[in-house]
Design a protein around this nucleic acid. Structure first.
Length: 270
DNA sequence: CTCCAGGGTTTGC
DNA sequence: GCAAACCATGGA
């Protein structure tokens, strides 16, 4: 079916913004996966798109996934008195903060530490291929991200084959804690950002940066602005060591994503 | 070959 | 409290 989106929505920038590791361009379409749902989107014009799902799935699953209830064009304007951030927001216009599965985000960002984005994508793909459920779509056969139950059955040697290296005990601790319900239970949705951060950091291998990524990319906590090596370089070079994201309040995480996207495509500038 | 990647934990002071 | 050492592996 065909849909219309009037706000920022650039599929290429979303897929290249380093927040989802399994979205992929297939010819003119972009593929997204969350839980056992798969969506293919093809841009038809600036504001119209052909989508592969039904109306109900679009409204119930994918509009929340793309955070379409929020006006990003207005948020970008908040950076107008901030030279670096306004340049970043301009370059990144069309990016959206995706609301992804919290379990997948926890594992994916534990894996992400000291790995390049292509290497992260490879490990996540191997986990899905080995422990996920197969999904047959019109265009391809792909695998869902493994459930905690499925991943708990993996041996150390098998996990090593997925390129997880020294993160294997971290992955196992996350799996155990999720299965026992001490982290990621639904009840955490109503907790404050501060309490949610503390909960996430009880998992081994989850520090401030990874916890903030989980909060931003799966809990919709857009006040969270993960500080990684690239963001640190930006803060040092353009902001004299002072965190520029805090002043954006509930939009801090969105600004961080513009900054991250920008620097990822202008690495020589820092 | 060497260097580094969307960091975190452990150790030593 | 902070800084440094250490961590497995693959892509560049």
């Amino acid at each position: 079916m065909e849909i219309t989106i009037y706000d920022d929505f650039d599929l290429r920038k979303i897929s290249e913004s380093g927040q989802c590791f399994r979205c992929k361009q297939i010819d003119k379409k972009y593929r997204f996966i969350t839980l056992n749902h798969v969506l293919y989107v093809e841009p038809l014009s600036a504001s119209s798109f052909e989508i592969s799902c039904c109306s109900n799935d679009w409204h119930m699953i994918w509009k929340p996934y793309f955070n379409l209830s929020r006006n990003y064009a207005d948020i970008r304007k908040l950076a107008q008195n901030d030279p670096f951030m306004s340049a970043a927001a301009d370059a990144g216009s069309g990016i959206r903060i995706l609301k992804q599965d919290s379990w997948e985000m926890m594992i994916a960002f534990i894996i992400s530490q000291r790995k390049s984005i292509p290497a992260i994508k490879k490990s996540v793909k191997l986990l899905a291929a080995n422990y996920g459920e197969i999904i047959h779509t019109k265009y391809e056969d792909i695998y869902s991200f493994p459930t905690p139950e499925a991943l708990s059955k993996a041996t150390d040697n098998e996990l090593a084959q997925c390129g997880l290296g020294y993160r294997i005990p971290y992955i196992k601790d996350a799996t155990t804690k999720v299965l026992t319900g001490s982290v990621l239970a639904d009840s955490w949705n109503s907790y404050t950002d501060e309490d949610l951060l503390s909960m996430l950091k009880t998992v081994k291998g989850v520090g401030d940066k990874v916890a903030n990524c989980i909060m931003l990319f799966s809990y919709g906590r857009t006040a969270s602005a993960p500080i990684d090596t690239w963001i640190k370089k930006i803060i040092a070079k353009y902001y004299d060591g002072q965190n520029p994201f805090l002043k954006y309040g509930n939009n801090a995480g969105i600004m961080q994503q513009y900054a991250f996207y920008y620097i990822l495509h202008h690495k020589t500038e820092v």
